[in-house]
Amino acid sequence: MLGMLRGLWQYRSFIGSSIKNEFIARFARSRLGGLWMIIHPLAQVAIYALILSNVLAAKLPGIDNKYAYALYLMAGMLAWNLFSEIVSRCLTIFIENGNLMKKMRFPRIALPVIVVGSCLLNNLLLFVAVLAVFAILGHEPTMQMLWLIPMTLAVVALAVGLGLVLGILNVFLRDIGQVVPIVLQVLFWFTPIVYSVNIIPEGLRGMLIYNPLYPLVVSYQSIMVYGTSPSLQDALFAFTLAFCLMALGLFLFRRAAPEMVDSL
């Protein structure tokens, strides 16, 4: 582990420049540039809000705002977009950079770190946009939003751990890359993002404990929408699971890195 950290520090300039170049290249020749990172998720929120707000707004007790459902939806999407983007990009990061891994000598762990840095930058811009929308809709931020810092770390740890495991498996078994997008769609609808937990029948709510993203999304919604601290039990469970999964991903990465280069 110390070797990984030492290697990342030695190649910090490479990592920083890669994140910067990726951001620039992604929106080259685009008039709106980085605004597209904000427009896409906000457009998705607007579509869901227009279609489902009349159905679900009445089922969001405790929010004194006529745009309650839109606020609830944006909070959940903020957590989901960060998670899904990291997992999706880690899934193919080693395959896409196979030639680079063969030709250049650098710590391979730098690749997922670059992904995380880029995704966090995207998420930060989206967060600023969401805060602006919250202000426009009359929902002021509270000091409880400081809880978003550790919860974001938990989302990143969970996504990196899962992304590394799936990315490594995808190198040796390419069917993984076809299955994961489908699983992510199922996970999205299995997580209370576009609907409230209150509408789930009592007998089925127990199944949510098998969803690792559930406590994180609920924590985001509690912090941003209700202005309350997340459940300490949910937060502890989320942190434990996230960092255990990240430790597993890093362990598998260290063991499989040499074989991955040969397979690529």
Rank of each mutant, 00 (worst) to 15 (best):
G3I: 01
Q10A: 13
I15R: 03
N21A: 15
E22S: 12
F23S: 12
I24E: 15
F27H: 09
L32A: 10
W36H: 06
M37P: 07
M37Y: 13
I39P: 07
H40V: 08
V45P: 09
V45I: 11
A46L: 13
A49R: 11
L50V: 05
N54H: 13
V55E: 04
L56W: 13
L60H: 00
G62K: 07
Y69R: 10
A70G: 01
L73M: 08
M74K: 14
M77G: 02
W80C: 06
L82D: 06
F83H: 02
V87N: 06
V87W: 00
R89A: 08
L91Y: 02
N99T: 12
N99Y: 13
R108Q: 13
R108D: 07
A110N: 01
L111T: 03
V115C: 09
L120E: 07
L125K: 09
L125M: 15
V128Y: 07
L131V: 02
L131E: 11
A132V: 13
F134C: 07
M145Y: 01
L146R: 04
L146S: 02
L146A: 07
L146K: 03
W147E: 12
L148G: 02
I149E: 04
T152C: 08
T152E: 10
L153N: 00
V160R: 06
V160Q: 07
G163T: 01
L164G: 05
V165Y: 05
V171T: 09
F172G: 09
Q178L: 14
L187E: 10
F190P: 09
T191W: 02
V194G: 11
Y195E: 04
V197H: 03
I199A: 14
I199Q: 14
P201E: 13
L204T: 00
R205E: 08
R205F: 03
Y220I: 06
Y220F: 15
Q221Y: 02
I223P: 08
G227D: 04
P230F: 04
L232D: 08
L232E: 13
Q233V: 12
L236N: 11
A238I: 02
T240Y: 05
T240M: 13
L245S: 10
L248H: 03
F251H: 14
F253I: 04
M260H: 05
S263I: 13
L264A: 03
